[in-house]
């Protein structure tokens, strides 16, 4: 089962993890990306995430399908927040299950890297000095 979703509300990582269950799975690896209070030397107060929804969903799905084939996964899913987030909030969740830990660790790392590089989602950081800026690395 492959799933990539966008969520305007809080992500429940425990509930997401339960959906990865498979009798053939001997390993489960989950990654949580949290909102940090500083970036590039500036104090961050909050973030806004904006997504181009239709393409984000299709690109996210493509990444999960490719990961499932490439690493021989039992299941893979990911959820990314949209809207306004505070410090410490869960911004992105990635989880995979696989027969063994090597594939699970590698696949989880590969998926979050691919999401960050390809899925059309943008971060607007709001700084302590009142300024804000979209990140376009």
């Amino acid at each position: 089962m492959n799933r990539f979703r966008l969520s305007a509300g809080a992500i429940d990582g425990e509930a997401e993890k339960r959906a990865l269950t498979a009798e053939s799975a001997g390993a489960c690896v989950c990654f949580e990306g949290w909102v940090r209070n500083a970036n590039d030397g500036r104090d961050v107060r909050r973030l806004d995430y904006q997504a181009f929804e239709s393409l984000a969903l299709s690109e996210g799905e493509r990444i999960l399908v490719e990961a499932t084939q490439r690493f021989g996964l039992c299941a893979a899913s990911a959820v990314h927040r949209t809207g306004s987030l505070g410090i410490g909030d869960l911004a992105v969740w990635v989880g995979v299950s696989a027969g063994h830990r090597d594939a699970a660790f590698a696949a989880c790392r590969w998926i979050i890297d691919e999401i960050k590089q390809h899925v059309p989602i943008w971060k607007n950081e709001h700084y302590a000095d009142g300024e804000s800026g979209w990140l376009h690395p």
């Binding site: 997504a51 181009f52 992105v92 999401i115 590089q117 943008w122 979209w134 376009h136």
Partner: peptide, 10 residues
């Protein structure tokens, strides 16, 4: 048509 600036999710 959508012009996509470099993305910054995650």
């Amino acid at each position: 048509v959508v012009f996509l600036p470099p993305v910054s999710g995650g």
